[in-house]
């Protein structure tokens, strides 16, 4: 136990994760138009890519939940909100959005700490 507490653990840093999300969203969606057939596959691809990039960050003892929403831009109203029952000190979230003329995309990552 003392080993665990003295060792400096890497924490979930929202800005670092936001950068990851930002890069993935831009790399994948840049220059693309909304397409009802292809977009569902993009959202899967995006959430899986973000998850594997987070794995590479090598922040141990965190579990990640990634949620990606892609919508068509047609002037409709959309609102998103969340609430969590977790440890404020260690757990956190990060989010980023991508907007183009035909689509918008919101990606949120929740990181929760767990004891081994």
């Amino acid at each position: 136990m003392s080993e665990n507490t003295t060792q400096r653990l890497k924490k979930f840093r929202p800005q670092q994760v936001k950068d990851v999300i930002h890069k993935v969203l831009h790399d994948t969606l840049q220059g693309k138009e909304y397409d009802p057939k292809e977009t569902p596959a993009w959202s899967h691809e995006l959430s899986d890519t973000i998850r594997s990039k987070l794995k590479e960050l090598d922040v141990e003892r965190y579990k990640y939940c990634v949620q990606v929403m892609i919508g068509e831009q047609k002037g409709e109203g959309v609102r998103f909100g969340f609430r969590a029952l977790w440890d404020e000190d260690s757990d956190n979230f990060a989010q980023d959005t991508f907007v183009s003329d035909t689509l918008f995309c919101v990606a949120v990552v929740f990181g929760t700490y767990f004891d081994v």
């Binding site: 899967h44 959430s47 998850r51 579990k63 939940c65 990634v66 949620q67 990606v68 929403m69």
Partner: peptide, 8 residues
């Protein structure tokens, strides 16, 4: 609107 979740 398309939503998807992935989790580690």
């Amino acid at each position: 609107l398309h939503c998807s979740c992935s989790a580690l």
